[in-house]
Design a protein around this nucleic acid. Structure first.
Lengths: 189, 189, 189, 189
DNA sequence: AATGAATGAGCGTTCATTCAT
DNA sequence: GATGAATGAACGCTCATTCAT
């Protein structure tokens, strides 16, 4: 009976990959990643058959964490705007608390080594959150534009806003609010 | 005397670099770029002392083209909204007409091989366009947020919009308008 | 665990380097050296982090072998002149038996890629031999010139002598003796 | 009628080559040498068909200058020892006054790109000086060893002595004398 | 004759991956 | 399962030399 794969090592590898990819881009070498994770070069390949697999798994892992965060319960009695504001705040907060992961994600999104399939898988993980936001926008935005606001604008606008906050951390409150206002007012029918 | 540097070859190299970087990221090899440009590997380095120089020059080149496009005259008698709509349309049109350049730009922006200095140089090239947009927003948006709307939101939102259009080219008109509306309504005081 | 570094391969690399550097100078390529050693190009760099390291290690290695040879016991009852003659003979013999190593050494000494530190390390390895020679010269040479004779003249004169022998191997005995006589008589007070 | 080759440019190229080879070894690039000489890369090759030719011509040039120096008249009435001392002094003085040329020479001697023919040509240039030294040693050294002393020892010993002086310039007088004494006393029959 | 752009082989080095231990 | 030595194809870049100007 062989030794089982250690979840701990897998995690260390993903974290090391996240750090190094954030820093150096997807060109970060497997040797460096393995070393940063405290395992040998060969071990990386028992957890991820190839570097592409590591990249894709990392992408899914990070998106998955974000999706989990978004899934936390929302106060159902709050107004649509207020619930959407919570979505917005969670997005921003997660990004600021996971800035390396976010940087890594940026690199991964832009790389053609992350497959369409991985992207699709991640998209699916946001199904519930998406539905929730859909409800929030239901009475507020033009129905035919709702898909555009959610799928195209919301997350990307949050990303932009986070970049602005990252550049001027002291103005976080103001920028965060300005970003939300832009989205809310801009999406009004 | 001797043979003069050929602007044609320089152009071919930049174009080849643009294509391959759009496709493969900044990891695209100088050998491939030279081959695609129809010159020998060594020749690349007579035009660009190093790959980093090529990357930076390409970045500046692309941004410069975009900046030129934005600089074309605007009808001074048009309303603020209409003039901003022209800005928006030019941005989108340029992006759609130069989709590889835009993809390459995306990769370059995300790479730390493009220096702060190059980014600064490009930022400066948009000074006039920026002033113009500032005037458009003057009576429309809250004064303290105008900088945020221009420096952080406008171009990035256009990028997002272009991505959406690229994914669904048939809905171009609709998406382009939805993006503009979001910006205009969202930025109203 | 894993495969241990093979002392055999390291040796083969150093020997191949010695041969090729003797022949072609320090410009001998790592690819040629690896091939001559029967390992792949990459393997060279698992044994020596860089070509400079290889060069320095080789320098130290060769000097070390020579130093070992010189360290063999000397008949304590022999006269100063006779003991010095043994030093001289060992020097010449080593040189003739290791003519490629000696040629390589010549190239390495002349290269600025061999660091001051490596040279210092090697100098130190001859400390005991140096002391012995010092004793031999003690009653024979002018005290203020002993350092000059040892540090500057002895080894270099042996080198010159070896070159002469290499050019006319048949006259080895005569040349070897002539070289020694020059040193012994020339250094007399 | 084509433009004649300029002796000035040829000289500048040889001098630049001397400097750079002294500094960087024979690996110094033709481009750097041309630049240092203030001519274009291509021009180097109208004066020297190949880098090997440049190397060989430089070797001959430097040796030739030294040979010229040695050829200056000697006081015929002086004793053999005194005349030999003049030879020795000129050798040392030339070396100290032309330290870059000497360093370059060292690199060239050790390189297999300098052909046996070039070496032979240089050897021949010292014919007269050699005869003169031969006369000086005639009544002093064992006849069968005179060739060894002249061809093998004299110049090389001077080289060694110069290195020692270069390392400790303040002790020039002492070292220069010690070197000569070693040669004179060492070569006595 | 002079120039320097053009060339492609070669350089030292890195890399993802394999496999003996 | 874990290790890290082994591999050889690429990589970015340099070079001696050629040749259009």
């Amino acid at each position: 009976m062989a030794r089982p794969l250690s979840e701990e090592k897998r995690g260390a590898l993903l974290e090391a990959a996240s750090d190094l990819i954030a820093q150096l881009g997807t060109g970060a070498s497997t040797a460096k990643i393995a070393k940063a994770a405290g395992v040998s070069e060969g071990t990386l390949f028992t957890y991820f058959p190839s570097k592409d697999d590591l990249l894709n798994d990392l992408f899914v892992e990070i998106e998955s964490e974000l999706a989990q965060t978004m899934l936390a319960p929302y106060p159902m009695e709050a107004s649509a705007r207020d619930r959407l504001l919570i979505v917005w705040s969670r997005l921003i907060e997660w990004g600021l608390n996971h800035s390396t992961a976010r940087k890594a994600l940026l690199q991964l999104k832009v790389s053609d080594r992350v497959t369409a399939q991985s992207r699709q898988r991640c998209h699916a993980m946001f199904f519930d959150s998406r539905s929730m936001v859909e409800q929030c926008l239901a009475g507020h935005a033009a129905p035919e534009r709702i898909a555009f606001y959610i799928d195209t604008i919301l997350f990307e606008l949050a990303d932009i806003t986070m970049n602005a906050i990252a550049a001027k951390p002291k103005e976080r409150e103001v920028i965060q609010q300005a970003g939300f206002d832009l989205f809310w007012k801009g999406s009004a029918a």
